[in-house]
Nucleic acid binder design. Sequence first.
DNA 1: GATGAATGAGATTTCATTCAT
DNA 2: AATGAATGAAATCTCATTCAT
Lengths: 214, 214, 214, 214
Amino acid sequence: MQEQNFRELYLQTLEKMSDLTERQKKVLQAALELFAAQGFEATTSAQIAEKAGVSVGSVYHHFPNKQAILIAVLTPVFRGTLESVADEFMTNTFSRGFVTLDEFITNVVRDRMTYIHDNATELKLMFGQLLTNVQFVEQIKAFFGKQLELFVLPTIERFKKEGKIADLPNEIILQLTLGTIVAYFGKLILNIESLPIEQEINIISTLLIKALRP
Amino acid sequence: MQEQNFRELYLQTLEKMSDLTERQKKVLQAALELFAAQGFEATTSAQIAEKAGVSVGSVYHHFPNKQAILIAVLTPVFRGTLESVADEFMTNTFSRGFVTLDEFITNVVRDRMTYIHDNATELKLMFGQLLTNVQFVEQIKAFFGKQLELFVLPTIERFKKEGKIADLPNEIILQLTLGTIVAYFGKLILNIESLPIEQEINIISTLLIKALRP
Amino acid sequence: MQEQNFRELYLQTLEKMSDLTERQKKVLQAALELFAAQGFEATTSAQIAEKAGVSVGSVYHHFPNKQAILIAVLTPVFRGTLESVADEFMTNTFSRGFVTLDEFITNVVRDRMTYIHDNATELKLMFGQLLTNVQFVEQIKAFFGKQLELFVLPTIERFKKEGKIADLPNEIILQLTLGTIVAYFGKLILNIESLPIEQEINIISTLLIKALRP
Amino acid sequence: MQEQNFRELYLQTLEKMSDLTERQKKVLQAALELFAAQGFEATTSAQIAEKAGVSVGSVYHHFPNKQAILIAVLTPVFRGTLESVADEFMTNTFSRGFVTLDEFITNVVRDRMTYIHDNATELKLMFGQLLTNVQFVEQIKAFFGKQLELFVLPTIERFKKEGKIADLPNEIILQLTLGTIVAYFGKLILNIESLPIEQEINIISTLLIKALRP
DNA sequence: GATGAATGAGATTTCATTCAT
DNA sequence: AATGAATGAAATCTCATTCAT
């Protein structure tokens, strides 16, 4: 991966992402599934073209190279995973003016676990990239850090002040909460049977609340 | 990846793993680092040879193909990750006949977090394979499942009977515990600052104990 | 380059060259500049279309293929370079009934150096083709040979008979004269500073006259 | 042609040029002939490999890309064309302490025309590159300029001081001399019959001497 | 006529693997 | 055993040309 071009390609790609043709969407969908299943390097242009039902030349007519396809695929995942934190937190969780820790935790758990459940393929690709793509790690960290600063940490601080949550370092609270939630993704990947998602959400929420209560 | 040969190659490789020459160790170390950093597919034989300070021909003299190198690298990781559960659990934890949940949890957390801390590179490679290597997933599941059946679950059951732990489904207990522990690996990967490991172990243990107490 | 079609394409192209649309002229101008700067092979249809400000499809609407564009571009160059010899020689030089070698040489030098000066791009393309395009070489030779036979050599012979020029083989006279003139093109290509063209013409003419005098 | 890398590739290539294997020489010889006959862009790796009697992979084992082959081919041409000016001028011409303009001109003409006669293929490639390769033009100019400054111009100046040569601008003297000599190359390219080379040298020398005498 | 998306043939390049030394 | 040159199969990418709109 030519890492030096990542940012440049990213910006170029973003421009074109607003109005994708039907064909481009098919290519991206095919690429997403293949990248997630086999990894980026192990996926060939020919496989993408075939799965998308177009010619290889057509793939390259719309995207300058394979890396651009990766970026075009990652961008919505990236946004969906992280920007939605802001949107959904604000609209679903924070904006409702939660008073109890219970409601807060339950909502966060429901929100994120549902997201994981609905977007397992996208997340698989994202995790794969986190392991080997240094540039991507930086982008994720920058974006994720900002979201935390803006939305999550202030809420946790508020709970601390109100004495509704144990006085733990924020990083530990996040490690416990997110770790437990992300472990749900691990179960999906490993194809381990789970309880029905609604039940999972309830039990996990209860556990986390118990752990975090002062 | 020629998946049909995985098991066969694995067995062949195991045989030779007992007495590795100096040269072979250098190759495996180089391969480990490159696979972890770039992924298996993105790593070329030439890179491995160069990093190991040997010729390409030499690499192929000791290993029949690139996949065999992967297996040879993965095997100790695999064992180190999972077999050690047995060893260490039995020698350090279980065999001592713990009576309190506190001691049990604290020991598990210390054991696994220390392992993660000391073997981040190996684990990175393992996670990468978990995402794309179906055969590997099966092996991991089989092995991990057996270890759980043999050592971990009986202990948890014992605690349940003794009323020392909340009456939760085992999978939830594991999700909470392992998720929180594995999140420590996430921090390492993302290069996020942590507390000193001793402190992390203490706080995390305390939190998990609090969550799991009846 | 499909050489077998060159002549056929050439004849087809000639027919259409008399009445070029505005669009076709833009395409040919763009192609001329790109072919001269980068060479024929290194220039893509897309580049021509873009530089001409038209679509790729439009280029192919007017010309059957890339080679036809080359021919359409070369033809006027070809004619401009060689047919003009006839025109200009007859109207400017020969028809005036020169009596002195001085006037003859000075006029030839002025005529050709001015042409080179005004058509450097076209000539660059022509020289490029002379190096690699066998068909083109044949055409140039045939055409050039005819012009020489008809206009230039008779004049030289006349001068010889009149004792106004040294008794040298014609090919040597041409080598000296044309070589020195074409070297002016070399200076342009290499971006080497020259004297003002009027001065160049005078000095070069003087030198050639001195060399060719009996 | 990725022009930004030309210099870098050039330097890398030079290092390896000192000890070429038999196989590399065959590849370079094949490439030289094909590039000269068809041009760089029109020559495929497969053609080079076939003509050299090796596999395509083998070509790329020794040269990182097609451009590196071009550079490796051009370098000796470049050197042969220009460095030899220094060597041969010094050993054959200048060092003999010529006293007459006649001997000087005759030697230069013989030296360069013989070189052209013996290296027409190499020169064809070089001229082709001069037309389209900006980087190469710069290298040629720099090198050629230096050779002129060091060897040729001082000699011309000496002749001027001694009153053995007409008082003309140096650039004009070069244009006349080199133009006439290079025109010999033109004849070869156009496949125009010449006199026997010894005779050509004599007549051309005589003409140039006549033109340059005070 | 005009457009530019689509394509397929082919070019460049990569790389795991083999093999002569 | 060790080396690294050699190879062929396959991957990425390019581009002249076609064609539906």
